[in-house]
């Protein structure tokens, strides 16, 4: 079940978010709202992304484009972390000898 958060609710919930800023972030594709009829709808994850975007803008005086670029790097970081975690899980399901071999190889690689 998707959350349905309106633009007005988002502006009320996110510290430092203005209508102008929200439009700028959407234009920079930092967040992609769903459109339903005339309304743009956001989800909870968009709210926390907007929190971060506003913080980056305020703390580092970034414009919307720059903040969107930083957020895309963070997205890639999260993707890599998730893939890495999936890899570890997959390895954990392998037989002991395979894990031992991979562990030894990883340790050797870590030393090299």
């Amino acid at each position: 079940m998707s959350e349905r958060i309106t633009e007005a609710e988002a502006i009320a919930r996110v510290t430092g978010l203005t209508r102008t800023r929200l439009v700028a972030f959407i234009e920079a594709e930092a967040i992609v709202p769903r459109s339903e009829g005339n309304a743009l709808l956001l989800e909870n994850v968009d709210i926390v992304r907007l929190d971060l975007l506003c913080e980056l803008s305020d703390i580092y005086e970034m414009d919307a484009e720059t903040a969107a670029m930083v957020l895309s790097l963070i997205d890639q970081l999260h993707t890599s972390r998730a893939e890495f975690a999936a890899l570890v899980k997959a390895i954990a399901r392998e037989p002991a000898d395979v894990r031992a071999r991979l562990g030894a190889a990883l340790q050797a690689a870590g030393k090299g």
Partner: peptide
């Protein structure tokens, strides 16, 4: 924080699959 959300769902414009 955003990081708390990235762990339970896929989200990022054009982002890849998120295990």
């Amino acid at each position: 924080f955003y990081r708390d959300h990235t762990q339970s769902r896929g989200q990022s414009p054009g982002g890849g699959q998120r295990p």
